[in-house]
């Protein structure tokens, strides 16, 4: 039973970690606390619905279309709403992301209607049986894809010039500008990556459940994940996401579904009180 809970929690937590990672990338790049991350994830589920069910694209093509659309969405959001507010205090930017999430939700409901849409992607749906433990192939695929994305992401930041410039910009905007870096382009890139990661998470959650704006609540589990892991920290976001997934499973399994929220948000409170920079954050930079 325990192993079962741990593995399921790990699989779901990987999806949360992916969405949280996208959140952390955007936060690191521009210090934008992006409350729209949850709804960006929902966009992923609906993009998958459009690409597979409405357009009838073969799955590999659909994946490319979904990722391209996600990148475009992130870039457009950054260009229209975040760039003009560059240099403004935190609060107006936060309000913008909240407004954005409400607008996107309404747009989705206008475009797709309020009825949840079932996804019909060719992701595997069977069961993998390992002794006593049963894992859904879909959850397992989600976890594996999440880890691959995280790996690609690390390689990108570690080994490519664009990744280096992104890290530099996150480190100091001004120094980046004075090194000739076009920070607007870099920030747009961060939004594209953050949106892509959210959208991939959304495709999986949409397939596990239904494409529905209610998924936003699950997407917003990325917030406790990043706060627990450390806002500034990339590994922190992933570990935070996995922790949230495992806590969720153990609390619902051993106590009650309601207990889940208590056990996710109590560590968040404790973290904010005793270690506001999070498990992996930087003490100087990482206060919430």
């Amino acid at each position: 039973m325990l192993v079962q809970f741990l593995l399921t929690g790990l699989a779901l937590g990987s999806i949360y970690g992916l969405v949280a990672l996208g959140f952390a990338v955007i936060y690191k790049a521009e210090r934008v606390f992006n409350f729209a991350q949850g709804i960006l994830m929902v966009c992923g589920a609906y993009l998958a619905y459009t690409a597979t069910t409405q357009l009838g694209l073969p799955f590999p093509v659909a994946v490319i279309v979904i990722i391209a659309a996600a990148a475009l969405l992130g870039i457009v959001i950054q260009f229209l709403f975040i760039r003009p507010l560059s240099g403004q205090p935190l609060l107006p930017v936060i309000m913008i992301t909240i407004a954005l999430s409400i607008i996107l939700k309404a747009l989705i409901e206008i475009l797709y209607g309020v009825q949840p849409k079932p996804l019909a992607t060719s992701l595997p749906t069977g069961v993998l049986i390992l002794g006593d433990v049963r894992l859904s192939q879909l959850n397992l695929t989600a976890a594996v894809v999440s880890w691959v994305c995280m790996g690609v992401f690390f390689a990108f930041f570690r080994f490519t010039k664009a990744g280096l410039l992104m890290r530099a910009t996150a480190d100091s905007h001004e120094a980046a500008i004075l090194s000739g870096v076009n920070v607007n382009r870099i920030n747009a890139g961060a939004w594209a990556i953050g949106t892509i990661l959210a959208v991939i998470g959304g495709v999986f959650l949409g397939q596990i459940q239904l494409a529905s704006t209610e998924l936003e609540h699950i997407g917003l589990l990325a917030l406790p994940a990043v706060v627990i892991g450390g806002l500034q920290s990339i590994p922190g976001a992933i570990v935070g996401g996995i922790l949230v997934g495992v806590i969720e499973q153990l609390a619902s399994g051993y106590i009650s579904p309601k207990a889940r929220d208590v056990f996710i948000y109590i560590p968040l409170l404790i973290m904010l009180l005793v270690r506001p920079w999070g498990l992996f954050g930087n003490r100087e930079l990482g206060r919430v």
Partner: peptide
């Protein structure tokens, strides 16, 4: 540009700092 206040990328290594400088 060498701005006031020793503006370097604190979390990057020396080599990476120079690479960013020469990225153009």
């Amino acid at each position: 540009q060498v701005p006031e206040g020793r503006l370097v990328f604190k979390n990057l290594t020396v080599e990476e700092n120079l690479q960013v400088g020469g990225a153009i």
